[in-house]
Design a protein around this nucleic acid. Sequence first.
DNA 1: GATTTTTTGATTTACGTACATCAAATTTGG
DNA 2: CCAAATTTGATGTACGTAAATCAAAAAATC
Lengths: 341, 341
Amino acid sequence: MRPTVHDIAAAAGVSLATVDRVLNQRPGVRSVTREKVETAIRELGYIRDLAAANLAKGRTYPLVFILPASDNSFMHGLNAEIRQAIVRSPAERTDIRTIEVPAFDPAALVSVLEELSRGKPCGIAMVATDAPEVRAVADRMVRDGFPIVTLVSDLTGSLRHHYAGVDNMAAGRTAARLLGRFLGPRKGEIAVLAGSMLVRDHRERLEGFTSVMAEEFPGLAILPVLEGRDDPEVAHMLVADALSRSAGIVGVYSLGAGNRGLIRALKDKVVDRTLTVIAHELTVHTRAALIDHTIDAILNQDAGHEVRSAIRVLKAKADGLAVIEAQERIRLDIFLKDNLP
Amino acid sequence: MRPTVHDIAAAAGVSLATVDRVLNQRPGVRSVTREKVETAIRELGYIRDLAAANLAKGRTYPLVFILPASDNSFMHGLNAEIRQAIVRSPAERTDIRTIEVPAFDPAALVSVLEELSRGKPCGIAMVATDAPEVRAVADRMVRDGFPIVTLVSDLTGSLRHHYAGVDNMAAGRTAARLLGRFLGPRKGEIAVLAGSMLVRDHRERLEGFTSVMAEEFPGLAILPVLEGRDDPEVAHMLVADALSRSAGIVGVYSLGAGNRGLIRALKDKVVDRTLTVIAHELTVHTRAALIDHTIDAILNQDAGHEVRSAIRVLKAKADGLAVIEAQERIRLDIFLKDNLP
DNA sequence: GATTTTTTGATTTACGTACATCAAATTTGG
DNA sequence: CCAAATTTGATGTACGTAAATCAAAAAATC
């Protein structure tokens, strides 16, 4: 049987109360005594029974998710996953709340964080807007002991405990290689559809994409980025326009949302030529397009995994425990029509 | 606050002891009374606090992993992940034991299972040898109440509660499409290297592979399968031989283990022609080969995820709880040199 | 050496559930 | 209606930890 507080008290020759004081870093213990207890803990290999401790404390983990108020499939999916997590709350002792903030608005995010830092949440997960002022508050809160993880989009150079999202640079590079290899020896132009270059994940995907394209597929020229604002209508217009303007386009990389518009544009135009298309995020629309060969590959991040991972990490940090790194790495899913879930 | 047994006793107008009898299906409760209690449970939305219950019972989850005694990187990795899980045992209340059985030996597996069914394990995870006699014992044990999950390789048509492994048919199909698309308009022959056609996962991969090849890439002809027994030496010999024999080979699909030998053969021979190569399982060797372009893509199953998933599922089944299906789906990882972890 | 302060011990209650015991109430059988 | 069997209640202990109280002992201060 694993040792309990009683065993430690006995081994250290002190009372249970003293052991408790040491374990929960309460004052009123001489450092010699504390030493004795800590030695006993180490020697017996004591590990506190978290379940029992949480029971005794009546502990719950109050967590806050801060999300941008964006109206696209991915964010809806993310929201749905958080609601699922809320359903599981009783069993997991979590108490999850979500806060919506205007998208791409550092000031709004900062004020929400300021507000939270006056409260009691034991953990914060946020889709970060990548701005210095956001980083400043986040870092201050980390130093003040708040567990903070970024979700989907990271905060450059910040102290946040963890990033629950994919490596977007790698995603862009992967897209480039897939596109390049699928096209083989063909030469031509590549259209890139993004949401906005103000978001870090989109910038990074583009950066990864262009670098591999330049290094390894010199026959393919990247056209100026189309910024579709993650809006299907805008995306449709931009892509349709680009396709009609340039006959040299052989491939498309859609690195943001709003793929509904992209797909419509592709279906209108493409009877006369074959395009190779790579898009991000698996939704009902992209899935259908993958199956009917309008899209050739989909890169995806699993929102469910991201949410569950964020929760696990925040709980672990709140308890001062280690996380299983490999488990928390969010993988880039590559879907062809053959390995759809 | 969530309701406790006390609240239920009060609501149902019975004593705590009676509630306990109902909850733990102990005898000595009239059906009318049982009804009252069950109604109260439903109406208050009571859910038993598993942590408290486990504490009171002093419960641990004795789990057994049955693994084939195969000497390849993948099995070594799987073993390592199980050892990691054993390290985490105290915190997870698990008590994990592994048993090695000769590979591809149904009789041995059956006798181990028979032995276990006389004991007390609350859950069994096994790399199944796909044979009718194995399925028979497994099904009997499932009916007797043992939670059983198959790991990596499934048991055809069995009642096992869960399969913690990838969809190998989908893996083969994916490999075919990748190879076909990477080769583009090129015509030629494809060499397939397998471990053994006696293992279900290899058979399925091959089946998926050939079907997509036949349907969609008629210009590519699949050569007779090379059975390398997952042994680097044998694999080396077979591949070197095939390459020297046929000048028409343009691609290779390695769906088993023993890739060390394959890679050596490729490096020896391939200076004079470009081959497109897809292999399974990310190891130090395949990773290096991917980076130096000897291999073009690696399909992988994450052994760590498989082990952790098997444990979560077995625990849930032992408690009669639901699992989060999406979380337990083992994904097929596709690695290009750009998205290596 | 007496006094104050700090440190330690002893003990209790609580968390939510499991499980056992014994007495009391109720039902059933004859 | 009585005896036997069944059902229910009341109560206590346990699991491992947290947290509080109050008394006792030890150390520090003057």
